[in-house]
Amino acid sequence: MLPAQFDYVAASSVEEAIAAKAEGGDETRFLAGGQSLLPMMKLRFATPSKLVDINRIAGLDAIEHHNGHLRVGALVRHADIAASDAVSGAVASAAPWISDPLVRNLGTLCGSVAHCDPEGDWNSVLLATGADVIAQGPSGSRSIAIGDFVQDFFTNSLNDDEMVTAVHIPVPSGRSGGSYQKLERKVGDYATVGVAAHLELAADGTISAAGVAMTSVAPINRKATEAEALLVGNAPTAELFAEAGAAAAAAADPRDDVRGSARWKRQVVAAFTGRALAAAAEQAQA
């Protein structure tokens, strides 16, 4: 399985990359880690006429704390996140479970976010933590809330001449915690079910903010808003988390497939939501 022909440009700056992309339009794609794009091109599911390689652009590979958020640059690889001391909560918890160690050495968080694969893990983590996507175009940068960024499966809200330069993940000043629970059939498999949870605690120990989002159980990564609403304002207890799990399961819309029955997947969503919340609470209380 070999890709069809295409033109190739290695950009040396974001501006150059955006210009090259704008010129080629729809048929042109950015090449980041290539761990989603190249497999699709080899199978000829994707046949772009031009690739704009962003790997040689300097300054996009940093993970840094900045104004109350964690900034993850466009060339930060999954492996960088898994190895970083700067990350915590659901982000730290998810990183080791993205694909396999070799794919993690090339694939990027921003590429994954841009790709909008409903089986991708990162968008659930970003939905749960309330992250923003930073998109740069010819006339400057804008910040897009992750919920607005993810439009549909394999569809984001970038303009043809925009590139994701970073993702901003809020870092709460108070007590917080997060976790990502993933059921995969083997290493390298996409999630059968994934649940990201993020909790913030008020001074009295009640939940002041909550994020729950799910992978692979809806046409796109889905936020479990009812579950979140149930949590806020209440004390973190096993009963509450079980209720939130049931709410998340109700919000899921899984399908019967070779990975398992829809009925069972809902059950796993409920169980994993409970487990993710318990782990998040434990972290926040520590």
């Binding site: 396999d100 059939r185 083997k186 290493v187 390298g188 498999d189 996409y190 070779v258």
Partner: peptide, 23 residues
Amino acid sequence: TFDDDGNCIGSNFMDYLVPTAWE
């Protein structure tokens, strides 16, 4: 396995699962 139209499910190593050292 196959779907009702005879499409093979398990036609590549993403769907035909060979365990890694981890499992």
